[in-house]
Design a protein around this nucleic acid. Sequence first.
DNA 1: CCCCAGGTCGTCA
DNA 2: TGACGACATGGG
Length: 288
Amino acid sequence: MNEFEFSIENDIFELRDIFECGQCFRWNKIAENQYIGVIDEIVVKVEKNNNQINFKGVNYGEKEPKELIYKYFDLERTYKNIQESLQKVDENMRIAIEYGKGIRILNQDLWETIISFIISANNNIPRIKKTIEKLSEKYGKEMFFEGKKYYSFPKYWMLKNVSVEEFRELGLGFRDVRVKETVEIFEKNQEKIKELYNLNTEELFEELLKFSGVGPKVANCIILFSDLKRFDVFPIDVWVRRVMNDLYFKKLDEKKLKDNEIQEFADEKYGDLKGLAQQYLFYYRREN
DNA sequence: CCCCAGGTCGTCA
DNA sequence: TGACGACATGGG
């Protein structure tokens, strides 16, 4: 266990936009310009003043905190260019970007992202967060930072002896079996999982659908929000269907708007940047 | 009591 | 393929 602290400068890095836009579930606001959360086996407090971002925390794992944080926050990527390109699409996109201009798409651990979004199915964000927190408290690694306890998201091998009934006690509901089956898949297919990183987006999508509890929407979220990181996917949930219908399709009953119809439209309109476009639209619609 | 939530799964035509 | 209900849980 050792502590770390360092600062960076970045124009495109707003705490609220990053942590409240629905891509992650383990961050909490502790002050006006501060969030605290867990990445892998480090606890991190992020504080922003002007364009200066400070990272302070403790490391309980093997990985170098600075490298972990650079990767996690996607700091190698220049979002300015991407925004400028997307802004040209139309006025709606320009407004959505203006609202969420501080968003960065995180590179979250694949295993954690898969489990988190399996839990997200037919669920709401506060309850998803609560359930993931319980899972971590019960099975993750205990960590201490500034007088408080935190818990890492449990690695798959830490869950191998957990029964379906024990999963259900966490409040997973009908998703308990899916989580259990996913643990087993990870135990038996490590080589195959490592190869996911070499696949193209289409192949990746097909492979992820084989997981229990992973359908089209969850698969696309995993591809976009994990360290698999591809921007050429467009996850469609109730909010995205809602915003797309309001802005473009204008059907009286939005449930009659088919996913395929939205997908084709998004391909055409946003191209390979549709993942980021989706996130600006989702965040804009959910917060307004 | 109802409806809804970052949906998926099994079933049936 | 495509439609449709079931599936736990908690909040409004």
